[in-house]
Design a protein around this nucleic acid. Structure first.
Length: 238
DNA sequence: AAAATTGTCAACCGCTGTGGA
DNA sequence: GTCCACAGCGGTTGACAATTT
């Protein structure tokens, strides 16, 4: 018995969103919130499936999103978290305020992966490439996350204890050569400290559109107002 | 200048997890 | 326990832009 498709294919628009569609979705979510994504397109007057609306909102229209490329600190965090969590992009994104899983995934695949390879680091295992060249077929290499033991209770993989220091070959000297950078994730680096604290999860929960608070301005993240400026501009086009 | 190639990223697809009936 | 609907996740695709030949 097959699952019903999330939307019937006929009459459902696909492809890039228009400014008008964005406006309708934003107007609807601002006014009503999103109790049930499946119902949103109908109520908002959109010929899209709910899934598409949710994705558009979470990846593009959300007012708390940061825009532009990840900065070096954020890249460090992504690399560190990827080493621990594997391709669990949503978990990684949850620890980077204003960034989406899609954005991080794209950034990983387009920038970081290549950067690590160039530096002689296997982007899957985070081990130096030359250590693996002799015996391991890259396509058969397990992800670091799959090597981590899973919690029997939650199914979640457990992070290794006493693993607060992570060596990242991310920094460069002037000749663009990689330089080992040891990041003590629990010490002085405010971003890393933030990322590994429980506070991040509280902050993630703080996000409420209607609340329109001024949280998450740490680490260079612009204010909600700043991030919404373009959106407000969009609405002014009406 | 045109064609081919490569890079980027928004969006889609299909699957899983979860909760309610 | 089973079925179903839904949200969310990660992998993949494809359109467009940028760069190279």
């Amino acid at each position: 018995m097959g699952r019903k498709p999330c939307c019937d294919k006929l009459g459902v628009k696909k492809g890039p969103w228009t400014a008008e569609e964005d406006r309708k979705l934003v107007d609807f979510v601002i006014t009503h919130g999103h109790c049930c994504w499946r119902a949103v397109p109908k109520l908002a007057g959109l010929c899209r499936c709910g899934k598409s609306c949710r994705l558009r909102w979470t990846n593009y229209l959300r007012p708390d999103l940061k825009r532009g490329l990840l900065n070096e600190d954020e890249e460090k965090v992504v690399i560190d978290l990827h080493a621990r969590l594997g391709n669990r992009w949503s978990n990684i994104a949850a620890r980077l305020p204003g960034r989406t899983d899609n954005e991080i995934k794209n950034h990983w695949n387009t920038y970081i992966k290549k950067k690590l390879i160039k530096m002689g680091i296997n982007p899957v295992t985070h081990e130096p490439l030359h250590q693996q060249a002799t015996s391991v077929n890259p396509s058969e290499m397990p992800s670091p996350a799959s090597e981590c033991p899973k919690s029997q209770d939650t199914g979640q993989r457990e992070l290794p204890e006493n693993d607060s220091k992570v060596t990242l070959k991310l920094s460069r000297d002037e000749s663009d050569q990689p330089v080992d950078t040891q990041v003590n994730v629990n010490d002085d680096d405010p971003l890393m400290s933030y990322v590994w604290s429980d506070k991040i999860f509280d902050d993630a929960l703080l996000w409420k559109f209607a609340a329109a608070g001024e949280e998450c301005s740490e680490f260079g993240m612009s204010s909600l107002e700043d991030n919404s400026a373009w959106l407000l501009g969009l609405r002014r086009l009406e």
